[in-house]
Amino acid sequence: MSARPALTAVLGDEGLRLFFPLAALHAALWPFLWVVVHGFQLPGASALPSGLWHAHELIFGSYGAALIGFITTAIPEWSDTQRLRGRPLFILVGLWAAGRTAGFVGADALAVAGGIADLLWLFALPLYVAAVSWRKRTTRLAAMVGWLSALALTGATARLGFLTGDADLARTGLHLAALVFLGLLALVLARIGVPVTNLVLDPSEETSPYRPHPGRRNLAPGLVALVTAGSLAGWSPAVTAYLTIAAGAAFLDRVAEGFVGREAARAEILALSGSSLLAGVGLLLVGAARLGAPFPETAALHLSLMGGLGLGVLAVFAIAGLFHTGRPLPLPRAARVAFALLVLAALARALPDLGALPSPPGPPHALAATLWAAAFLVWLKAYWPFLSTPRAPDSGGC
């Protein structure tokens, strides 16, 4: 009997094995500490509002790790190239973790070192994808290179604001980074939604019954890009409001494509459609708030970023976590429970501020933070045995 490989060798075999658990741990712990333990204050923050660190760590901490895991796993599969293994992945882990040292307690003194580390991995991702695209002589990855480059530039803008103590600059960079992540979400959902839906409709993979209209594929990311460009150009709040509403409608159009018969009730389809639904409704409400609706824009943003983006990330964790460890659909019960907990967390965070529900008892947003942490911990508990087990020789991808 051959010896079982070391855990580091198993985790270093593929990006998702290493970064998805890290992303889940960070997503579970950071908001809970911020809300419940620290009471919306961070012990190391002084120059800038603690809320900016909170937004930064959600975007570049939790979602950043998820993005690294996704890119280092999906790009080799999409391009039919060798995946990154071992040392390159652990270097990326080190850079990502170094960036979290400052954000964990909002330590202004560590902002320089943390910022450099974050910028290194942020710019490494588009360079990696561009290098793969160049070697394969393909333009199919050009959109991904563009979005990743935009994320790196917005991350640099936010970090410059942190380093200079300019709260407005940091806030602008974080807002633009959030839009870029929503654009990436739209791009990823368009890319993975078709094969997942076809697999649900025909598990034998002999046919491809689901073929959405090709003109809709880039509608949502294109409109999010227009909103981002308008924000950068300084267009009026009314103009960006209507553009944001249009982007939200494009996400809802993606939801309509999820109606594929009774299989639309499958957890895999519901999670992907639900991600578009929450992102789209959130963007619609952001636009409404800018046009004078009686609720804060931050509540609507939480619906898009916690609900839409969070559910999309968790859906990718659940689906790719099966396929890349040699396990078939359907999703395990724990994944469905995690989806429900995350949706409840997003609603508990956003609906009271939108005036749709009374505030729950207890400290502000403590219920939302607890449900959010539970969602990622439930997924991690169920999937850790899969991810920490050596890859089967005949296991495919997604």
Rank of each mutant, 00 (worst) to 15 (best):
A6G: 14
L7C: 10
P21I: 04
A23S: 15
L33V: 10
P43S: 13
L58H: 13
I75D: 02
S79K: 11
L92K: 03
L95R: 07
W96D: 11
W96R: 05
G99W: 02
G103E: 10
A107C: 01
D108F: 04
A109H: 11
L110G: 02
A111R: 13
A113I: 15
A113K: 02
G114Y: 04
V132D: 02
V132C: 02
W134M: 12
R137I: 01
A143W: 07
G146N: 13
L148H: 01
A152E: 06
T154K: 01
A167M: 01
L169I: 05
L174G: 07
V194D: 09
L199T: 00
E206N: 06
Y210T: 08
R217W: 01
A220N: 02
V227Y: 00
A256I: 10
V260D: 07
A265T: 10
A267I: 02
L272D: 03
S275I: 02
S276H: 09
V281N: 07
L291K: 03
F295Y: 14
A300M: 05
A300T: 07
G307L: 03
I319A: 09
L329H: 10
P330R: 09
A335Q: 10
A338I: 01
A348E: 07
P363S: 14
T370S: 15
A375E: 03
F376N: 11
Y383L: 04
F386D: 11
L387F: 03
G396C: 01
C398Y: 03
